[in-house]
């Protein structure tokens, strides 16, 4: 064989002389990168725990679980209940919007809509999910609140209702798309059985599809709650910073997230007030972590095997 280039010999030489360094180094570089994500989790836990510890060491437990929140007064008090109350109420309002709208939208997309309208509606939903929360915050404060004031004259400029509703709108796509995923994975054979017996689509949806997809649907609700609890800018802007415990949704109330924003953006020096941020952050972190774990557990444990 007369080859123009003797590739064989060149390769032989190169393979022999080639050091296997990169081959050994690269996996370690990748491992290092992968461990950054673990370091991030550890970093979050360590920062939250260390600085919370300083807080819990200084403030008696009885005070923490009180309704008196006045971090900046001369005689500061750090009751966390108003913040938890504010968080729960705004999240509940959000769920009241997101669950019915999101779930029925999911039913429509999965069971009623034609392939064509599904393909146009879903991306629009995704656009809604991609809008930055600061934009929703502005929208809640400058549009939804004034609009609601016409209906409810007693509504304050900063209140729980408006951000709650807007937060709900923000998480509609989350509920809709996750529930829709769960419903579309219900096999057609189950639907056909019922349809063949003369059930209407609605009956099939409610009696066959939803029960079969229930774990995925519930997981989507839990994730939605987690998202609402952790949402920051909408409530910071539109719900204000009132630290009194109230159940009146026309009034301003502060959430845990809004408290953190208020206290860092003001130049609070290092002190009990500063550490209280981390205590609130830790509680918030545990809340959302718990929700996420529950959602994962539900969708893993009850994953339907058709």
């Amino acid at each position: 064989m007369n080859k123009a280039v003797n590739v064989r010999d060149i390769i032989k030489k190169n393979i022999k002389s080639k050091k296997n360094k990169t081959e050994k180094i690269m996996p370690n570089i990748f491992l290092l990168s992968a461990s950054i994500s673990i370091l991030t989790t550890i970093g979050i836990l360590v920062t939250l725990i260390i600085d919370s510890y300083k807080f819990f060491a200084e403030v008696p437990v009885k005070e923490i679980f009180s309704i008196n929140l006045a971090p900046l007064s001369k005689n500061p008090s750090f009751g966390i209940l108003p913040l938890i109350n504010g968080t729960i109420i705004t999240s509940l309002i959000a769920m009241c919007v997101a669950v019915p709208v999101g779930l029925t939208a999911a039913m429509y997309l999965s069971e009623f809509a034609s392939e064509k309208s599904r393909k146009t509606l879903k991306p629009i939903m995704e656009v809604l999910a991609g809008i930055p929360t600061i934009v929703y915050g502005f929208f809640a404060y400058s549009f939804v609140t004034p609009l609601l004031m016409r209906l409810i004259p007693s509504l304050e400029a900063k209140n729980a209702l408006s951000p709650g509703i807007v937060m709900g709108i923000m998480i509609i796509p989350l509920v809709a798309s996750l529930s829709e995923d769960a419903m579309s994975s219900v096999p057609n054979s189950m639907r056909e059985g019922a349809l063949a017996l003369g059930s209407t689509k609605l009956e099939v949806t409610l009696k066959v599809v939803v029960p079969a997809a229930i774990s995925g649907i519930i997981a989507s609700f839990v994730l939605a709650i987690s998202r609402a609890i952790g949402e920051t800018m909408i409530v910071t802007i539109a719900s204000g910073s009132s630290k009194t415990l109230t159940f009146d949704i026309t009034q301003s109330m502060q959430t845990m997230t809004a408290y953190i924003v208020e206290f860092t953006s003001g130049d609070a020096g290092i002190g009990t007030g500063y550490y209280s941020l981390y205590a609130v952050g830790l509680i918030l972190f545990l809340f959302t972590l718990l929700m996420n774990l529950i959602a994962q557990y539900i969708s893993h444990k009850y994953r339907e095997e058709y």
Binding site: T40, G43, I44, T47, L48, T232, T257, I260, L284
Partner: peptide, 10 residues
């Protein structure tokens, strides 16, 4: 799933 505000604290 960690709220963005927590990343701020980090």
């Amino acid at each position: 799933g960690v709220p963005s505000v927590i990343f701020g604290l980090l």
